[in-house]
């Protein structure tokens, strides 16, 4: 891990994501821009991302589908929607589907950074919570299980926690 926040940017506007990628790179983000939902899922399967910034209206897979798939496959990724034609309906739907934030284009840099940072903190928090639970469970197991049982439990937890 480089220490930078790993961000996946998904938007069919190539110029937009390239520029956004450049600017976020200056602000300690490790940005991977992709131009479709399919490419985003492929990138996420190859590499772990902390955050994803996803457009809603795209040819092919829609942003909402990308959000749902990402959240299903990678529980710790935080997804923020950045869309050109936002509506209350779609904001509610996306929040229900698990998006951390819902931003409208064009979005002020400060606001975007704030949301991204909050989202990252959320992710870190959730991950830490998860680790804590994992350690506690391991401690509990070590106190009552046989050495073989402890090993088995460890394996189970590792399988669960793979991100």
């Amino acid at each position: 891990m480089s220490g930078k926040i790993r961000l996946l940017v998904v938007d069919d506007e190539e110029r937009f994501i390239n520029t956004l990628a450049k600017r976020l790179s200056l602000r300690d983000f490790d940005v991977t821009p992709v131009t479709s939902g399919e490419a985003a899922l492929e990138a996420a399967s190859r590499q772990e991302f902390d955050l994803a910034l996803v457009d809603l209206k795209m040819p092919g897979m829609s942003g909402e589908d990308v959000l749902k798939t990402l959240k299903a496959k990678h529980p710790f990724i935080e997804v923020i929607i950045l869309t050109g034609h936002g509506s209350i309906d779609s904001a509610v739907q996306c929040t229900r589907a698990g998006s951390y934030g819902y931003l409208q284009k064009p979005c002020e840099t400060e606001e975007l950074l704030e949301v991204l940072k909050d989202a990252y903190q959320e992710r870190v928090q959730r991950k830490m919570n998860y680790s804590k639970e994992k350690i506690e469970a391991l401690m509990k197991a070590s106190s009552c299980e046989s050495p073989l049982g402890i090993l088995r439990k460890l394996k189970e937890l590792e399988a669960e926690g793979s991100d």
Binding site: R15, F16, L20, L26, G84, H85, Q104
Partner: peptide, 29 residues
């Protein structure tokens, strides 16, 4: 709504390009 999308997208590009130029003027970066 469709039109908003069509207009907000180029606006977002303009905003980010302007932001990029602004960043380049910022000695911090």
């Amino acid at each position: 709504t469709g039109i908003a999308h069509e207009i907000n997208n180029p606006l977002a590009i303009i905003y980010e390009e302007a932001g990029l130029i602004k960043d380049s003027l910022d000695p911090e970066f």
